[in-house]
């Protein structure tokens, strides 16, 4: 019998560690950069969304509200109260839009990933790559938003600068959660449920626009379970200069949430893409 083909000249075995995956996943970021080289307006315009909210809600509505009392007894303007929360919700919405809608489209309609999976890149690299891309975009927005906050005089504490890395963490957490959800969705109609029952209520009730203390104890406890509540709490704390046990717990919650979501996303996407 003829010999089974040589193993000669085989490239060194691809390392399967997380660091190697991270390195290889940069190809996905490169791909998206190439695509958005022509569509940079889309990225640029994404910045206006939170800005409009800040102007409309923070200032327009703010004239009706007056001041808001903080946990430590200080009173701040409504714009200063709502700005960090808008940053948190923008991080969530951006990450979810990217990881749910874009990834769903590539997964099901344009079959971009099928083509990539025929190369040495695997599912883990795709998932991490899409997350990195989403974080890259998110980081641009965070920087821009923080600059606007400074420009509008909404900066109360130098701790504000910690807002940037924390926002990136928040983006990563929701991006992983979005990926994990996407892996379960089959049709476009399947989006209605997670968007309507999870994302919109979180957006409205997680202390974004008003302190949850206006609600009965039971609802407050329920709201404290949601990741956006902790994201808002953490960013608001940093923006107004409060970092205590509460904020530490918020941070711990986000780290754990991000890890679990990432774990599910990686495993579930693998099952979804390998048939």
């Amino acid at each position: 019998m003829t010999a089974i083909a040589r193993r000669a000249a085989a490239p060194p075995p691809a390392s399967t560690g997380i660091v190697a995956s991270l390195l290889r996943s940069r190809r996905l970021v490169q791909r998206n950069l190439l695509v958005y080289k022509r569509g940079w307006m889309v990225i640029f315009s994404g910045f206006f969304e939170p800005l409009f909210y800040l102007l409309g809600i923070g200032y327009g509505l703010g004239t009706l509200v007056g001041g808001v009392e903080l946990a430590d007894g200080r009173t701040v303007s409504y714009a200063a109260f709502v700005a960090p929360a808008l940053l948190a919700t923008a991080s969530m919405n951006g990450a979810i839009a990217e990881s749910i809608f874009n990834v769903f489209f590539k997964l099901n309609f344009s079959r971009t990933y099928d083509a990539i999976l025929a190369t040495p890149l695997g599912i883990r690299e795709i998932a991490i790559g899409e997350m990195l891309w989403s974080l890259f975009r998110g980081t641009l927005y965070v920087f821009a938003f923080v600059l606007v906050m400074i420009g509008m005089g909404l900066v109360i504490s130098p701790m504000l600068f910690f807002v940037i890395p924390v926002s990136i963490l928040i983006g990563a957490a929701f991006s992983a959660a979005g990926l994990a959800t996407t892996a379960y969705l089959r049709t476009v109609q399947d989006f209605d449920l997670p968007m309507g029952v999870v994302v919109m209520p979180m957006f409205l009730f997680s202390g974004t626009f008003f302190p949850i203390s206006v609600y009965p104890q039971v609802i407050q406890l329920f709201m404290e379970l949601t990741p956006l509540f902790h994201a808002v709490g953490l960013l608001r704390g940093l923006a107004v200069g409060i970092f205590g046990l509460h904020e530490l717990w918020d941070l711990a919650y986000m780290v754990v949430f991000a890890s679990i979501a990432l774990w599910i996303a990686l495993n579930r996407l693998e099952q979804r893409l390998i048939k």
Binding site: P11, P13, A14, R31, V35, R111, T112, D114
Partner: peptide, 23 residues
């Protein structure tokens, strides 16, 4: 066990074209 190394040396033309429509 060696999927990535094998894929590095294969060319695959699937039944339905899956070109990157955004590029």
């Amino acid at each position: 066990t060696q999927a990535a190394q094998i894929k590095a040396r294969l060319g695959v033309v699937p039944q339905t074209d899956n070109l990157d429509a955004e590029l």
